[in-house]
Design a protein around this nucleic acid. Structure first.
Length: 351
DNA sequence: GCCCATGATTACTG
DNA sequence: CAGTAATCATGGGC
């Protein structure tokens, strides 16, 4: 039994003895609640503190001995029955205070969220749920930010681990404390009447206290997941300019198909591969480009001319190479960029 | 720090 | 569901 328990036990024992002032542990008489005697109360508290501070193993042993003496006292059974009687009379108020706890809606919400995020619940499902959540958050664009996905999963796993460790700790502490209190009460029940109901009530109080701590844990875990998610979503929205090369390839395609700048799915895939971006990024790019070009053709004129010239040079090179090729050995016509024939005029305008 | 360019998102349409 | 138009939010030049 630890020091605290011994103190409590001693206090209980001494209190019960009804002989304050003996045995080195004196508790002040109950105080009036008028609040006028503030100085006196301070003095009392000071006394109590002093008594606690001056507790020694010796005084505790003395108290134990006194308690033992009391237990063996011939008047003890009579005193015990009187206490039982008093208890019986005051028991009504305790019974009246009985309450069945309805499930806390906030706790349920937190539980549901933790379950949905894969933090609570079975391990295997957790990872899958997290991955699914991540995929859903990315708008279904598969594979485009797998780095963030794994990062997200790793962080979520970390949160999950911390959550479970803490939860376990709380549970253990709760059990330990409950056992401790029950032992204490059992011990005390030898000198004062304690009904099983009271013990149950006490256990309930302890459990409620611990579950409120658990609720805090759940709340902060939820917050952590939320922050992680928002960061993840922010990262998704973060814009990175495409490489110069990629923009060039896209522009070349756009201006060489100015009459119909709608790449087919295959063309998009090819462009995506060439630019090291996703198909949806290619679609975004063309969507943006079309609308921006249409809105201000004048502004893009120079660019259009530039790419028209570029494509023309490419085509010329291709032709030259083809001519050279045909002159040497092969009858086939090689393709410079892999694109279809440009359908632009020399000034870059749509045909 | 401002301002324009630009990639991403969203609401809407056919 | 692809495409349009508007809008958001950031990058980057000045």
């Amino acid at each position: 039994m630890d020091e605290q328990a011994r103190i409590m036990q001693t206090l209980g024992g001494v209190n019960l003895s009804g002989h304050p002032g003996q045995g080195g542990m004196t508790l002040p008489p109950p105080h009036g609640h008028d609040g006028t005697d503030v100085d006196g109360r301070k003095q009392d508290i000071g006394d109590i503190l002093h008594q606690i501070m001056t507790i020694t193993d010796q005084s505790l042993d003395e108290a134990q001995a006194k308690k033992h003496g009391l237990n063996c006292h011939r008047m003890k059974p009579a005193l015990f029955s009187v206490l039982c009687e008093i208890k019986e009379k005051t028991g009504l108020s305790i019974r009246g205070a009985q309450e069945e706890e309805p499930p806390d809606p906030q706790l349920m919400r937190l539980d549901n969220m933790l379950l949905a995020e894969g933090v609570a619940g079975p391990e295997k499902g957790g990872g899958a749920a997290a991955a699914a959540a991540a995929a859903a958050a990315s708008g279904g664009a598969a594979g485009d930010n797998s780095i963030e996905h794994s990062d997200y999963r790793a962080k979520l796993t970390q949160i999950r681990q911390i959550y479970h460790t803490e939860l376990e700790k709380y549970e253990q502490a709760c059990n330990e404390f409950t056992t401790h209190v029950m032992n204490l009460l059992r011990e005390q029940s030898r000198t004062r009447p304690i009904s099983p109901k009271e013990i149950e009530r006490m256990v309930n109080i302890i459990h409620r206290k611990f579950s409120s701590i658990q609720m805090q844990l759940k709340q902060s875990t939820c917050e952590a997941v939320m922050i992680l998610r928002s960061r993840f979503l922010d990262a998704r929205r973060k814009r990175r300019n495409f490489s110069k090369q990629a923009t060039e390839i896209l522009n070349e395609y756009f201006y060489s198909h100015l009459s119909n700048p709608y790449p087919s799915e295959e063309a998009k895939e090819e462009l995506a591969k060439k630019c090291s971006i996703t198909v949806s990024q290619v679609s975004n790019w063309f969507g943006n480009k079309r609308i921006r070009y249409k809105k201000n053709i004048g502004k893009f004129q120079e660019e259009a001319n530039l790419y028209a010239a570029k494509t023309a040079v490419n085509a010329a090179h291709a032709v030259a190479a083809a001519v050279q090729n045909s002159q040497t050995n092969s009858p086939t016509t090689p393709n410079s960029g892999g694109y279809s024939a440009p359908c632009y005029q020399s000034d870059g305008r749509i045909q």
